[in-house]
Simulated assay, not measured.
Amino acid sequence: MRINIETAELQAFIAVARQSSFRAAAEGLFITQPALSRRIENLEQALQERLFDRTTRRVSLTPAGELFLVHAQAVMEELELAVKSVEQRMAQRREHVTVACVPSVANNLLPQVLKRYARSHANVRVRIIDESAADVLESVRKGEADFGVNFIGAQEAEIDFAELTRERYLAVMPTHHPLAAHASLNWKSLAGEKLVSVSSSSGNRSLIDNAFSRVPQRPVIQYETNHVAGAISLVAAGLGVALLPELAIRNAPYKGIVARPVTSPVLSRAMGLITLKGRVLKPAAATLAQALRDAISTRSGK
């Protein structure tokens, strides 16, 4: 048998039972007394039981009403709990942020930023796409990431690129390397050195190749890796010198390496926050983006 009872009728019944008054219950529900009476009548018809004894002086529950009140209150409490659970679940599903960034940012900057961010956004789920510069750009372009931190994208028509800092490249070498005795190096001093380099598909590599194109005698790339971490490991093993962005080696967990700035000219890259043009970040993403801006600004001394 289909139960033809509306929640408004249950609310009306519970209100009258608690107030022992149709007038007070109607005022509490912000409806008229005739409307309240119709709800009670509909409920009694559905149950085929009288729920209240009504006199000119008082309203009281019948035995059937007392029995039904226990279950009606339980039903409304369960319904409220169900609604709140769904609201909380949907809120948690809505509160998520995807940030794309190059590995140097993901490894050396993002962890501390997220640690602080989690204190005020404990329920926000964060997905990190830590890939190459080209992949980071593509993630933002496709809408997979809310925003990215990258050193390419400034020339893309559909991308907004907000520069955060300029990151210089350093020559990384074993501590016993002859060039380690110098406070800084020029490009000519690297001529003839065996280099450890990231792969030719890397955005880092294109910047380095462009710089070496202006040097009469360029170093020999002896070892090539896909990731900066691999290059650092080879340098630590004494296999050569690597030109790497400063952020990538700032907190590198390796012993036996040193880094020296390279001048004449200084090689650097613009690190920026990239978003899809015209996209407005949701609050949780905007807060994380600002936290990254502040962290980079602090490290850069701005």
Rank of each mutant, 00 (worst) to 15 (best):
Phe147His: 05
Glu6Cys: 04
Ala295Gln: 02
Ile208Asp: 07
Tyr117Leu: 03
Pro253Met: 13
Gln19Phe: 00
Ile3Ala: 00
Arg293His: 05
Phe147Met: 09
Cys101Pro: 00
Pro216Tyr: 00
Thr298Ile: 13
Val124Leu: 11
Ile5Met: 02
Glu131Tyr: 06
Ala122Asn: 05
Arg57Thr: 14
Leu110Trp: 14
Val220Pro: 04
Leu179Arg: 04
Ala181Asp: 12
Gln112Met: 14
Leu195Ile: 05
Leu51Asp: 03
Pro245Glu: 08
Lys115Ser: 12
Ala145Ser: 01
Ala24His: 12
Leu244Gln: 08
Arg141Trp: 09
Ala162Val: 14
Ser268Leu: 03
Gln222His: 14
Arg38Leu: 07
Lys188Arg: 07
Leu239Pro: 08
Ile257Arg: 01
Glu158Met: 07
Leu179Met: 06
Val149Glu: 07
Ser202Gln: 03
Ala291Val: 00
Ser202Lys: 00
Gln45Ser: 11
Pro265Lys: 01
Ala64Phe: 03
Val59Ser: 02
Leu47Thr: 00
Met1Val: 12
Ser85Ile: 12
Val172Tyr: 07
Val149Asn: 11
Ser20Val: 04
Phe68Arg: 04
Asn107Ala: 15
Ala157Ile: 13
Val99Tyr: 12
Gly143Tyr: 00
Ala242Phe: 13
Pro34Gly: 13
Ser264Glu: 13
Val196Ile: 00
Ala145Leu: 02
Gln217Thr: 13
Ala12Met: 06
Ala252Asn: 07
Val258Thr: 13
Arg93Gln: 15
Ala134Asn: 12
Arg205Pro: 08
